[in-house]
Simulated assay, not measured.
Amino acid sequence: MLYNVLDLIMWILAICAFGMSAWALIHAIRSPARAFAVAGKQTKKMWLIILVLATLFSFMAAVGYFGIGLGQLNIFAIASVIASGIYLADVKPAVSEVGKGGNSGPYGPW
């Protein structure tokens, strides 16, 4: 009974890792390439490669491709969470700020 509960928890964590990686990948796809350079981050192409691999590995962990049963977290799934976390915590806020005008008031730009 205990192993079933732990397997369920690991599967939920793997699904959350996949969702986090997919969210980061979608944001990177929708962001303009110029914003990465202006923010002083790696290029958009580099982040897309990293996030596609992270999404792929987290998806494979969620469907149980690597091990016996569902949700076996491994080193690749953990690395995908780290890569997605770095993107969401550091790159996403910097890239999102590019292009926003600093002269906007409470009802729009002046």
Rank of each mutant, 00 (worst) to 15 (best):
L88K: 05
A77L: 00
F66H: 03
F59A: 12
V81N: 06
Y65I: 12
A61C: 14
Y87Q: 02
N74T: 03
W110Q: 07
E97Q: 15
L73N: 12
N103Y: 11
S104N: 08
K100F: 13
G99A: 09
A79V: 04
I78V: 14
Y65P: 01
I78A: 05
G67K: 02
Y107D: 08
Y87W: 05
M60F: 14
I68S: 03
W110P: 01
I86S: 06
V63T: 13
I78P: 00
G105Q: 11
E97H: 14
V95C: 09
A61F: 01
Q72P: 00
P109N: 12
Y87S: 06
V91S: 02
V63C: 14
K92Q: 10
K92A: 13
A83P: 01
G64L: 03
S96Q: 14
P93E: 00
G105I: 03
Q72I: 08
G99P: 03
V91W: 07
L70S: 04
V98L: 07
S84D: 02
S96Y: 06
G105N: 11
L73P: 04
Y87R: 05
F76D: 02
S58D: 10
V98Y: 05
D90F: 15
P109W: 13
G67W: 10
V98D: 05
F76R: 01
V91L: 05
E97R: 15
K92E: 04
M60T: 00
G67P: 00
D90K: 12
G108K: 13
N103H: 13
D90M: 12
V91D: 00
N74E: 03
G108T: 05
G101K: 15
G99F: 02
G71N: 09
V91E: 00
A61I: 02
I78T: 06
G69R: 13
V95Y: 02
G64S: 08
P109H: 13
S96T: 14
G67T: 14
W110F: 11
Y107V: 10
P106K: 12
Y87A: 04
F66N: 06
Y107H: 14
I86F: 10
F59G: 07
A61W: 00
Q72E: 14
I82H: 08
I78Q: 01
G101L: 13
S58A: 13
N74Y: 02
F76A: 09
A62R: 05
G85W: 03
G71Y: 10
Y107E: 05
G101Q: 12
V81Q: 04
G67N: 10
V63Q: 08
V81M: 11
Y65N: 02
L70R: 13
L88C: 06
Y65M: 07
V98P: 03
P93H: 11
N74G: 07
A94N: 12
G108P: 01
S58E: 04
F59H: 03
Q72C: 01
A94L: 12
I75P: 03
A61E: 11
G71L: 09
F76T: 05
A94R: 15
L73W: 06
I86E: 03
F66Y: 15
A62G: 06
G85D: 00
L88N: 08
A94S: 14
S58I: 00
G105M: 10
A83I: 08
